[in-house]
């Protein structure tokens, strides 16, 4: 019977604000970003330096209290250029593509940061034009926003450091 029946859709827009508590470690980390300072927590058991910092080492289950300074320069450990646009759930708008992404091991940390990586000329409105190829092992550096807010997107993207 369904062949003769019009199939109706019901559109519903989710448009809500959510309030997240950071916890102590993430508060210190976020506050540091506003001063272009990156800090990791180090596990006294295995020595792993964690970004983002968190209260407990996932490997050793030890509480971490030992803060270490991390540089805003690091090494590209993985990369991609995303050509498929994604709807950004924070704004409801499509993120311009293509854009470069990478896993970056910042000097002084043992985990990697996933972030945008500039693959070509200057980044405009979130679009990274095609440029020289990325490769694993490349040196990259954080490009900071002018007006820092104490959030991870104070780092706009990473750019390749010319050797």
């Amino acid at each position: 019977m369904n062949d003769r029946v019009e199939r109706l859709d019901v559109p519903i827009l989710m448009d809500e604000a959510w309030h997240y508590a950071s916890g102590e470690a993430m508060e210190r980390f976020s506050t540091g970003l506003a001063a272009r300072r990156i800090e990791a927590l180090r596990c006294d058991g295995c020595g792993r330096r964690y970004l983002p910092p968190r209260p407990m080492c996932g490997n050793c289950r030890l509480r971490m209290t030992h803060w270490v300074a991390v540089d805003d320069t690091g090494t590209l450990e993985a990369w991609t250029v995303v050509h498929q646009p994604i709807l950004d759930g924070r704004t409801g708008e499509e993120r311009p593509s293509p854009y470069g992404m990478g896993l970056i091991r910042l000097d002084g940390a043992d985990t990697t940061v996933n972030h945008f990586v500039q693959t070509g000329g200057p980044r405009r409105q979130g679009v990274t034009p095609p440029g020289p190829p990325l490769f694993i092992g490349q040196r990259v550096r954080a490009v900071w926003r002018e007006e820092l807010r104490g959030a991870m997107d104070d780092i706009l993207h990473f750019e390749v450091v010319e050797p």
Binding site: N2, L8, D9, P11, I12, E16, H19, S22, M26, A151
Partner: peptide, 25 residues
Amino acid sequence: MIRTESIHIPFTYAAGGTSSIFLAA
């Protein structure tokens, strides 16, 4: 520290066989 973030996603639900008849009526 409290951070407020919006979530803004459009959904489209299929009413399905019987509910389509209900809504069309």
